[in-house]
Design a protein around this nucleic acid. Structure first.
Lengths: 307, 307
DNA sequence: GACATCCATGTAGCAACGCTACACACTCCG
DNA sequence: CGGAGTGTGTAGCGTTGCTACATGGATGTC
């Protein structure tokens, strides 16, 4: 019935705890509990069940929370309509990114956005290993994440996904390496090489496994680092070769690090923006998204010129 | 921002006057005015303009009212979701119809609905000439209306239209008429005949014009009646022939009135249910609609057996 | 041209609602 | 067995949205 109450139910569905909902909505847990009780009484059937010291939603609760999302989207769209009427893309937009995308896209994007008066973006970065990126949509308006081809970890959660770019993953070689004369590299070429890999759980690992399978031999992984700078340093030092995202590559090792495209495996990652559907409707958010898309296109075009 | 206020704006868009909105929502005009003022202040731009002693919506107001409809639809859908969860198609549904459809569909439909406990339909009829049927959606949940093929008078108003059946319009002849031996009739056949027509503005008139055009000669219209019973009585009395909806035909003149299908012109009318989109989402309304559809199918099937 | 009428809109007051603050019950874990 | 984490009741208070009544314009009529 009441939209505010439905909103609370939706928050509960995402945050799994009344205390968390209260914190997020600047209320007392008691207030949240009371409102949900009223909603439940109106609905005429239980929406939550106690489970340990917390609680979980019933099937009915989940269904109602889903509808609540549609209501929130419609409402956000209404807001956007009159923001457009006033040409007023004003407000704060919060954004998280994984580090490499932040380095590649955000400086240019933030500069463009600073040209829009009244529009403010608050950016942070988070380690993709430590955080559940889809879950971050509860806290941030825009979440920049990446996935490998075919991998869709954020499907089914009802999130809005906007693709920004697809970035090829190349093989990084030290200058003078035997393969630097090649114009591309296949899995067979790298048999016997030592790799600088990524920690377990990182999606890059899957690609190394694919290379293993295609080449039919096992891969030697010497070190596992999460930070691209560290990886690059090791490659330059001749301690191994590594997968390096083509556009994100630091480039501060001119001539000492050589990138070669990889053929025979799906070596690319897709960089996307994840959002809660209602937040995606906000005019300010849509404006930031548009800037990110053009910035991504700019980066991609720039690298196409200097291969 | 607030849904209640958006709802008031939407009502204002339809009812054109604060007093009317107040009456419809069981409030004082003052209350409505105050809430719209708040909405306007929040929006930051004027939503209404004074015009004479009433007021009209600005462009921004109309746009916002449209979004308000989407919000109302989402909200109604949420209600329907948990009504379905409880299997609870309870409530009152109001319905207006034009007389012939009421005679044909409502007795059977109301009987079926009475089998659903807690579901109540309040039916009325209105003369299609005297009332603007699309506008009646403001007062009634379901409005039964008809249109001829190609005619869509309710488009663009943002109403939900559910087709119930298409009913052929036949030519009604008195027993013993020279054409009763034919199995169908063409415009050329009826040259020289005297017609019992419908008053101006009634859609039947258009079909008579079509017959005129196809036949290439002018039609003689002796009388113009709105009520089908009167028309039938005149036909039986041998005072002329007339267009008669095939399923709606009274049938209380057995053997004295003969119906023959008309070929060569689009002689059929479509019977539809008109609804405000949010009301169409209500489970009770959808249930009634379903009954109406099956009842329409039953009537159609019954007449197919006895041609 | 004065008056009745029909609008929308202010103002004061009141009732209802949703929040905070605090206390309490319960579960998990060291 | 506490202690820290949950969710939930109760009392009280501020805000909000309503009614009742009065006011200001625009329209139409005798």
């Amino acid at each position: 019935m009441d939209v505010q109450r439905l909103e609370l139910l939706r928050e509960l569905a995402e945050r799994r705890s009344i205390t968390e909902v209260a914190r997020a909505t600047h209320r007392t847990p008691s207030a949240v509990s009371q409102q949900l009780k009223v909603l439940e009484r109106e609905a005429g059937l239980p929406l939550t069940e106690r489970s340990g010291r917390g609680l979980i939603l019933t099937d009915a609760g989940r269904a109602l929370a889903r509808s609540a999302t549609d209501v929130a989207v419609a409402l956000a769209r209404a807001r956007a309509v009159w923001d457009e009427f006033r040409n007023d893309a004003t407000g704060e937009v919060s954004l998280v990114t994984f580090p490499t995308a932040g380095e590649m896209l955000l400086p240019g994007a933030v500069r463009s956005i600073s040209a829009v008066p009244g529009l403010v973006v608050n950016c942070t970065d988070k380690d993709p290993e430590l955080s559940d990126f889809p879950a971050l949509t509860a806290e941030y308006d825009i979440v920049l994440a990446y996935s490998l081809r075919g991998q869709v970890p954020w499907g089914g959660r009802g999130l809005t996904v906007v693709p920004l770019m697809t970035e090829p993953l190349d093989v990084g070689l030290p200058a003078g390496h035997r393969l630097t004369s090649r114009s591309w590299i296949t899995p067979a070429d790298v048999i016997g090489e030592t790799w600088i890999g990524a920690p377990e759980g990182y999606p890059f690992e899957r690609i190394l496994h694919q290379i293993e399978q295609k080449a039919g031999s096992q891969i030697t992984i010497a070190q596992k680092f999460a930070d691209l700078r560290v990886i690059e340093a090791f490659v330059v030092a001749g301690l191994g070769i590594a997968l390096v995202p083509r556009y994100t590559w630091g480039g501060d090792q001119p001539g000492r690090l050589v990138l070669k495209p990889l053929r025979g495996v799906d070596a690319e990652r897709q960089i996307v923006a994840l959002m809660r559907p209602d937040r995606a409707e906000r005019l300010a958010v849509r404006t930031v998204l548009e800037v990110l898309r053009t910035e991504a296109a700019r980066v991609q075009a720039q690298h196409a010129l200097i291969p």
